[in-house]
Design a binder for these strands. Structure first.
Lengths: 260, 260
DNA sequence: GACTCAATATCGCTC
DNA sequence: GAGCGATGTTGAGTC
């Protein structure tokens, strides 16, 4: 059966449906008056009120109030759900091992409850992120400037990773910090710290640069930059390169490639 | 009416129910075969498949697949939902102004659809966070050590805010960095940066400290600490104080206080 | 499993 | 509305 719905069932009938749904590994939706308590990484209590409960076949457990994107309480995938009747109420428990977390829902009045056998074989295709930008720049380094040659990606320094490291046509070292959205002052500070890290590092290549009087150029690469960030960047002698993150889905790309 | 459910309705009937639900500002749940596209801060496409759609009266729009805690696509509160019929299919659009974002769902087969008038006047009560730790330490400073006196909270320095600033019994300056969970190396680095910031700041009190040969003590306060963080901390001459975040709900506290 | 980093992060708070 | 920090962040990739 694809799905089953019970309207205003007793807690006992609700319990039977939950058991059936868990056995069949289906997705459960409940609209009910409930009370919620959580203990684990933190501690929380939510008094009686109506909410929507969703339990997914992967163990995910969500409780939504009528506001906000985020669930008021939840458990992550691989949590174990069990249910029982106590004092005529329906209890749902979701348990996680590491870290030890327990979510307990006490239901006293079910408005409706259902389970659904979801058939979905598709995955989200997306674009427009920092990684896509990095991929694009590695493929087409001339987007940064003529003669730019990337030499490393995710290059580790004291305070983090430099997104892209490379050389310009004069063999100056170039340090690229990528942002997929409008760059703020934090992005400039981050890049500044990486540049300091590089200067403090004992690195043969850098020593060679120094002996040849090569510069280290810092470049912030983003679609746009905030005013205060631009000011700090100019004071620090860092350059700004405006590049939009690629807005092309892989599927579109694949289609384009297939055409040739 | 508290709620309404339609099983396997036509897209036209589904459209009517959506319109009614939007007018009544209720929460909508739909289990249907749909196709989703999003364009805004990023870009995404999700091909035909069955999902659960939730639209809340605050404008929140969620699309859940059968896995994960996070929705596969969504819009935040205050988004505007509209619906229409095109090519015999039901379209749902959720639009946001700033930043400009559009989520479009095309539904070709509805398994069930309902709206629910949720009554919920409760808010989540929680404990076990960094803020609770700070409150506790401000109330009971001797938890840090005998003679500790807090002087400021959220004290602003170049790279951020010092959680708690204070003095020990010898009038040495104490800089506390709080973490509600196991402290990692980033917490130590953060504290180290704040200490550097303080030393670089032109501050009368600090000058006075210097003239009196007072020290600046950095303290990382957390329930526990990772090995590498402990190593760095010891090298930096920073102290570690183990304190568990308070696990007491405000309601419990209130009851306790009322008892006296 | 632990660690690191990005995210359409979301959310609450301050300015 | 922008900016900043915390989050039971989640999720993905790497080691």
């Amino acid at each position: 059966m694809k799905y089953k719905i019970l309207e205003k069932p007793s807690c006992e009938d609700g319990y039977d449906l939950v058991q059936e749904a868990l056995r069949k590994k289906t997705t459960i939706l409940i609209f009910a008056c409930c009370k919620v308590s959580y203990e684990g990484r933190a501690l929380s209590e939510l008094n009686w009120g109506e909410r929507i409960i969703m339990i997914k076949p992967d163990g995910t457990f969500l409780i939504h109030q009528e506001k906000k994107v985020e669930p008021v309480n939840w458990q992550p995938p691989k949590s174990r759900t069990r249910s029982y009747i106590k004092n005529d109420n329906l209890f749902l428990e979701s348990h996680r091992r590491t870290p030890k977390e327990l979510l307990t829902v006490e239901i006293r009045k079910i408005q409706f409850i259902n389970y659904a056998n979801i058939e979905d074989f598709e995955e989200l295709e997306q674009a427009g992120y920092e990684k896509d930008m990095g991929d694009m720049i590695m493929e087409k380094p001339h987007m940064i400037e003529e003669g730019f040659t990337p030499t490393a990606r995710e290059y580790s320094v004291e305070h983090g990773f430099i997104d892209i490291l490379g050389k310009d046509s004069d063999n100056n070292l170039m340090v690229l910090e990528l942002k997929a959205r409008k760059a703020g002052i934090t992005a400039v500070k981050q890049l500044r710290r990486y540049l300091q890290d590089l200067e403090n590092t004992d690195n043969d290549y850098l020593k060679e640069c120094e002996s040849q009087k090569k510069k280290i150029r810092g470049l912030l690469v983003a679609p746009s930059i905030m005013d205060d960030a631009l000011e700090l960047l100019e004071n620090e002698g860092i350059e700004f390169v405006s590049i939009e993150p690629p807005r092309e889905l892989k599927r579109d790309k694949k289609v384009t490639l297939d055409a040739f």
